[in-house]
């Protein structure tokens, strides 16, 4: 039973189509990445998932039931635009938000303290929010989304604005939550993060789903025909008939082959020719490559004049 199931949802604001014919499903225990350039409809999609707006057509199902507000107690949400009450003390704030999610005061307080420890911000507990750094505020907001132990965690751009150390801490926490069997959905336009974290992805562009599936599946659809080589000696192998295209940056070459199985042949030919390799690696297409390729293939991309602000 999928935790979230969107079926053919559509949302139009005035004349702008925000989301069009989008369907996707998120299984329990998955880390799901919702990708797309800015303004492609990620936030609109998320808002429809949690009933902040209602789709014009199509259906939203949460935990196997048609959407209803009472299910929101099982969802944790971190919005893209972070916000906390500036004048409130951190602990009061967390307790208040916990109570709004249906916890009683004692439980909320206990869990808030536990999480502050886990997120390494114990010293902030008694302070007012406005006295804290941006990163700290973000962690508090992160905690606020998790206090009620939701089964579905939705995070809109969770890593934006975090330094690498804190981003790492957050990623680790998300992975732990996933191993506890919770479904985590996050949106981002940073492909490198998704690649490491996600089990499944969906790419949306201009309100439409252009690609979705498990990470392995998505990557499997694209041929492994790229090679990165670090070498000394003759570069004659770059002109091998199986090489479609090659860029040589003084001993570091990026090669695109006509087919993935040609790699061994090219390597053998090069070694026979006396070229010395420090590295010869057949690389998977990165998600970024896939993303750009997919988006470029859409009709809307051509309409857009060939720009992607990913």
């Amino acid at each position: 039973m999928p935790i979230v199931e969107l079926q053919n949802i559509r949302k139009v604001y005035d004349t702008k189509v925000a989301v069009e014919g989008l369907s996707l499903a998120i299984e329990p225990g998955t880390m799901f990445g919702l990708l797309g350039p800015n303004g492609s409809g990620k936030t609109s999609t998320i808002r429809m998932m949690i009933g902040m707006t209602v789709p014009d057509s199509g259906s939203v199902r949460l935990f196997g039931q048609p959407f209803q507000r009472s299910l929101l107690g099982r969802v944790g949400y971190l919005p893209e635009e972070r916000g906390l009450y500036k004048k409130m003390k951190v602990l009061d704030q967390l307790v208040f938000l916990g109570q709004l999610h249906g916890l009683d005061e004692t439980t909320a307080r206990k869990r808030a303290l536990g999480w502050c420890e886990r997120m390494e911000i114990v010293e902030a507990i008694g302070k007012k929010t406005e006295e804290l750094s941006k990163g700290m505020q973000q962690k508090i907001q992160f905690i606020a989304a998790l206090l009620h132990e939701p089964e579905l965690i939705i995070m809109d751009e969770p890593f934006s604005g975090l330094d690498p150390v804190n981003a790492e801490l957050l990623m680790r926490t998300l992975i732990e939550l996933r191993s506890d069997g919770k479904a985590v959905l996050f949106s981002t336009h940073r492909m490198d993060q998704v690649e490491k974290l996600c089990d499944a992805i969906a790419i949306i562009y201009r309100g439409r789903l252009v690609l979705s599936g498990s990470m392995r599946e998505v990557k499997g659809r694209y041929t492994r025909n790229r090679v990165q080589a670090v070498f000394t000696g003759s570069d004659a192998f770059l002109r091998h008939p199986s090489v479609l295209q090659a860029n040589n940056y003084a001993g570091v070459a990026e090669i695109t082959l006509t087919a993935s199985e040609q790699a061994q042949e090219v390597l053998a030919a090069a070694i026979a020719n006396g070229t010395q390799f420090q590295r010869f690696e057949v690389i998977e297409p990165t998600l970024e490559d896939i993303f750009i390729e997919t988006v470029k293939a859409t009709a809307e991309y051509a309409e857009d004049g060939g720009r992607v602000d990913a």
Binding site: P79, G83, L100, G102
Partner: peptide, 17 residues
């Protein structure tokens, strides 16, 4: 207006109407 300027409303609206 406070919720709007501090952007708290989105967290609140995720649970309340």
């Amino acid at each position: 207006i406070e919720e709007k300027t501090s952007r708290v409303f989105e967290v609140l609206l995720a649970t309340i109407t």
